[in-house]
């Protein structure tokens, strides 16, 4: 027998992650929303393509459009991340966890390893499947994109990365707030309400601020050619990573300081 290691704690967290129904349900909903809404959006566009105005046709991006369902699936993955930590506080089992693993950073690292590796696999599968389905629906009527193009492949792959980062964002908020309802409220506010607040600001501010919103970063990540008022795909990815890292660092600092 040997000591508590990151590997042993990760095995424990993996067992915990897959043995509650909320995790499985979260991924099922992620799949259903991305794929289902993707089918709806692409079918609708195919139907209206002939009557669309030329300007819209010019700005049309077959990749980000087919991945439109991620705008809703992001809430499902966020909740998976939130529940992975807040459910421990809700039941009180966080004490059992921290008693078994007194080095608290190990708990966070192990949970992140499990959350990121599972979510990235599920999210990549779902975005590529949705993309391929979308192009199939478009084909013949609407211009399509092909994965053989490097920038198309990048946009689809970053769609999966976007969902994964949002799961981690949810986890980080859960770590800070320790309460499921509070964490879900803040998470939704960041994604939905911040854009509305910015919309109230003067026009000149809007354009310079709105591109920093998490959902705008996601849109940039999934666009083959991001609109001019947005960041480039890689800059957007980097910015989102910075956001998530800041939230995580705060969460870990609080976990180390607080009584469990």
């Amino acid at each position: 027998m040997s000591d508590v290691t990151l590997a042993s704690v990760t095995r424990a967290e993996w067992i915990k992650f897959r043995t509650v129904r909320s995790t499985i349900m979260g991924y099922v909903v992620t799949f259903a929303l991305t794929l289902g809404l993707g089918a709806l959006i692409t079918t609708a566009i195919r139907g209206h393509w002939q009557t669309m105005d030329p300007l819209s046709k010019l700005a049309f991006d077959p990749v980000s459009t087919s991945l439109g369902g991620t705008l809703f699936a992001q809430f499902a993955v966020g909740v998976i991340g939130i529940l992975f930590i807040t459910s421990e506080y809700a039941s009180g089992s966080i004490r059992t966890t921290l008693a078994a693993t007194p080095r608290r950073v190990q708990v966070v690292a192990a949970k992140l390893l499990v959350l990121v590796s599972v979510t990235v696999v599920v999210a990549e599968v779902v975005v590529f499947a949705t993309f391929l389905m979308g192009q199939r629906i478009f084909s013949g009527v609407v211009p399509t994109a092909s994965l053989s193009s490097g920038s198309v492949f990048r946009s689809v792959a970053l769609g999966g990365i976007y969902l994964t980062l949002l799961a981690v964002l949810g986890f980080g908020l859960g770590l800070i707030l320790r309460q499921q309802s509070a964490a879900i409220s803040v998470f939704t506010s960041l994604l939905l309400i911040v854009p509305i607040v910015i919309f109230v600001l003067p026009q000149s501010w809007q354009t310079s601020i709105s591109r920093y919103e998490p959902s705008a970063l996601g849109h940039a990540m999934m666009s083959v050619t991001p609109p001019l008022d947005m960041f480039g795909a890689w800059t957007a990815t980097l910015l989102l990573i910075v956001y998530v890292a800041i939230v995580l660092v705060i969460g870990v600092a609080l976990l180390l300081r607080r009584d469990a």
Binding site: M1, S2, A12, K16, V20, S91, G92, S93, T97, T101
Partner: peptide, 22 residues
């Protein structure tokens, strides 16, 4: 009562055991 209500007793103990290499 400090156990995730949706997890089984066996899985709860298995996770604990795994963390300490039991």
């Amino acid at each position: 009562k400090a156990v995730h209500p949706g997890r089984t007793a066996r899985n709860h103990l298995r996770a604990l055991a795994a963390s300490n290499q039991i």
